[in-house]
Amino acid sequence: MNIFRLAGDMTHLVSVLVLLLKIHTIKSCAGISLKTQELYALVFTTRYLDLFTDYISLYNTVMKLIFLGSSFSIVWYIRRHKIVRRSYDKDQDTFRHYFIVLPCLVLALLIHHKFTFKEVMWTFSLYLEAVAILPQLVLLQRTRNIDNLTGQYVFLLGAYRALYILNWIYRHYTEPHYVHWITWIAGIVQTLLYADFFYYYFQSWKNNVKLQLPA
């Protein structure tokens, strides 16, 4: 494990915890896309099927369980919690799941390393993770007032992806057999989706003004 990978995982972990804590303490999910959260729950479910078949490390297993548990908790809060669900703005969060899920599934069936159930599901999870943030980004653009925590959540998610790219570059040079182009392409696409958001995030930070995305 290199420093970029660890920093990436920790950023990812903090992003999820920030979101869960925000929802839990202020009992509101305003500005959060349920669609994105459901897609992440699907990403983790399909990617971590190997929990049942392979043991990699304690770190790996624990982190996988945390990501699964937190993503399903967030979905539960937004859908079922009697106070939190009232703050969910259904009319703004209009992105259709199948516009994202179907193309990813078709792509995973066509482009993969091995045609086995586990491998296709793993590949599907990579493609899906790359675009799962889209409903959240659309929602951010529609919400004129982005609260600090939501902005930080999206920023941390983007930072996690950027750190993973550094991790791959590092591994590419230090581990000669480490080649995984599907991961790379999906990961680069995913990081690019944040480019626009990053630009406005840093602008607002530099000028010390509230984050707002242009319409």
Partner: peptide, 10 residues
Amino acid sequence: TAAESGKDEL
């Protein structure tokens, strides 16, 4: 192995 195929990542 898991490391070679990147499956050791999250």
